[in-house]
């Protein structure tokens, strides 16, 4: 029985790499990312884990973004894609309603790290 459990677990693990590894961003700082998001007001449109106010509804909720499938329904949810998207969404996903935001490339990586760190 225990063997069966272990096998099932192994099988489950082989399907999808653990999100923590795939979304590992060693050079980015989630705390700095949170400060950036507060400075530019991302939460005016999005509900975001770790940000208590506001919880904007004009855009989709970003709670627990690590589990999100595609970014904006188009891009694989990878750190490089996410960092590029939060900085200049229309350039990465043409036609995106979300505008380009006034943040630098390194700040964008911090923002992505913060989004991945958020729990549901």
């Amino acid at each position: 029985m225990r063997l069966l459990h272990a096998l099932t677990l192994l099988l489950a693990m082989s399907c999808k790499p653990p999100p923590a590894e795939m979304q590992h961003m060693p050079q980015a700082d989630p705390a700095r990312g949170k400060a950036v998001m507060e400075r530019v007001g991302c939460a005016a449109c999005h509900e975001i884990s770790g940000i208590r106010w506001p919880k904007g509804k004009a855009g989709p909720s970003l709670r627990g973004f690590a589990d999100q499938g595609l970014i904006a329904g188009r891009l694989p949810n990878r750190p490089d894609n996410l960092a590029a998207f939060v900085r200049d969404a229309p350039a990465v996903v043409p036609g995106s309603t979300m505008p380009a935001m006034p943040i630098s490339e390194s700040e964008a990586r911090d923002v992505a790290a913060f989004l991945y760190a958020g729990r549901k």
């Binding site: 530019v40 007001g41 005016a44 449109c45 506001p54 904007g56 855009g59 979300m98 505008p99 935001m101």
Partner: peptide, 23 residues
Amino acid sequence: LGAGILPNNRGTMMGWIGDSQSI
């Protein structure tokens, strides 16, 4: 934006016009 509560940029302005009640 919104009486001293949000930074004023294109994104926050869209969020405010779209649904200021959630803010």
